[in-house]
Design a protein around this nucleic acid. Sequence first.
DNA 1: GACCCTCCGTACGCTACCGGACGCGACGGC
DNA 2: GCCGTCGCGTCCGGTAGCGTACGGAGGGTC
Lengths: 264, 264
Amino acid sequence: MSVSVHILDTSKSSPSSGRAAVSENRLLAALPAEDLKRLQPHLEPFSLVAGRVVMEEGEPVEWVIFPTSGLISLLVRLSDGRAVEASAIGREGMAGLPAFLGGTLSPLQGISQVKGGAFRLSAARLRRETLPGSALRALVERYTNGLLAAAAQSLACIRFHRVEERCARWLLVTHDSVRENTFELTHEFLANMLGVRRAGVSEAVGALSDRGVIRSVRGHFTIANRAGLEAASCECYRVVRQEMDAVVGLGGGDVGSLLRQRGL
Amino acid sequence: MSVSVHILDTSKSSPSSGRAAVSENRLLAALPAEDLKRLQPHLEPFSLVAGRVVMEEGEPVEWVIFPTSGLISLLVRLSDGRAVEASAIGREGMAGLPAFLGGTLSPLQGISQVKGGAFRLSAARLRRETLPGSALRALVERYTNGLLAAAAQSLACIRFHRVEERCARWLLVTHDSVRENTFELTHEFLANMLGVRRAGVSEAVGALSDRGVIRSVRGHFTIANRAGLEAASCECYRVVRQEMDAVVGLGGGDVGSLLRQRGL
DNA sequence: GACCCTCCGTACGCTACCGGACGCGACGGC
DNA sequence: GCCGTCGCGTCCGGTAGCGTACGGAGGGTC
């Protein structure tokens, strides 16, 4: 069998190499230079450890987190213990929106799913910095809008798309944030995120492996053929990515403006 | 802690009797008297006609709508035409959030699902009235927070709960907004909302009818046993309702503070 | 080297729901 | 009163995913 290569690219500012730049988070990078400069002293480097709970359901939101290379999954949990990921917050986003929206407690559980870097900002400081008319406020508002649209898309996704497609989508999102072709992830973790059986993930992963787009061995995933993986995923990956691109200003568009590209 | 009371009493200001009061929308009712008074001249009565599209996907959001007795369903549509309801906006809410969040175009399609009354406010006026520090801004921010939480709950709901439970939940939400024990609704419409087959709805409705909690004949639904219907629905109804109660100040709590009541 | 634990491949019966279809009764137009 | 349409009850074969379980391979520990 093939041996997975752990580091495929360390050319520039690799996420795992020491200090990450604030601008690696695309939301922060979208701020005007002077705004970011003013914010920077309050942004504290924060390490995302795989599997750790960074935000507890029902607990106060004391920090908002801007991932630079890791990934935070927000989980909804039902009373019987079953759970599913509501949203994955990567380097295009920010975890802890309730702090901005006048809620003090988090309705969701946040788990840092794949190890990586991030910056965090205290909720109090966020409120102080999102002054009326500030670029940060406008940006976070647009991001909220995008997140709502993304949640709606995920709703349709979870209803209509098959495990294999959703699995591919999830791996793509992770790949985007991690920016390494290999990352650590068990089938069981992924199953928890997708809200399906572990065995279901194994089957889906097996099918994707057979097609040669990924490799998966004992807690490690390798993206072997990115384009193929995109083809195997559902449209939701593309739709949400375009929405988020619009939020950070790529294409200069609006969330809604992209809907026509869905092929309707 | 205060207890919320369901008002089924139609003695005065019945939804169907002529002019509805602005305060029948619970979001507007939560505003301080002077704020509401200032807003009132700009609130224009708007009639919700069953089945009409009030907000088109990808079109500019020119109005935000505050239902007083009707119900607006926000639909996500996939490129293959399949659709599912992302959220139902009743009299505890407001449709058109993107106008507030810096988006100009609507990512979702809004359909007024059950006929009823509403007030609408131009998007431009909303932006002018949601001044920093205003009660309206704070309220809409909290509402946004609640809507995100509700969307997350619906995500888990659509993943784990059966058609019959989701069907019961939908009827309860409708009942809350319509405040009449009988309303017009076809199985096919309901199927579109839930994202399932028409036949699937017929089966679920049949089961609920057999238990005597509802009656359904040719385009009409009657709630026969409200408590029984609540027992037949999934926990999501209660969870989302409590979240929305928190938004409008009932119980004075926070969205997250209610999560512990889920029985975890 | 012996052991154990984690992780994963696979298999089996089962259930909810799908897609499609047919027929019947209610209702409205003429 | 007749007929077309609409809404609904029901049925059937098909299937994606479930719950459960078992065994085997990788990797750490002593």
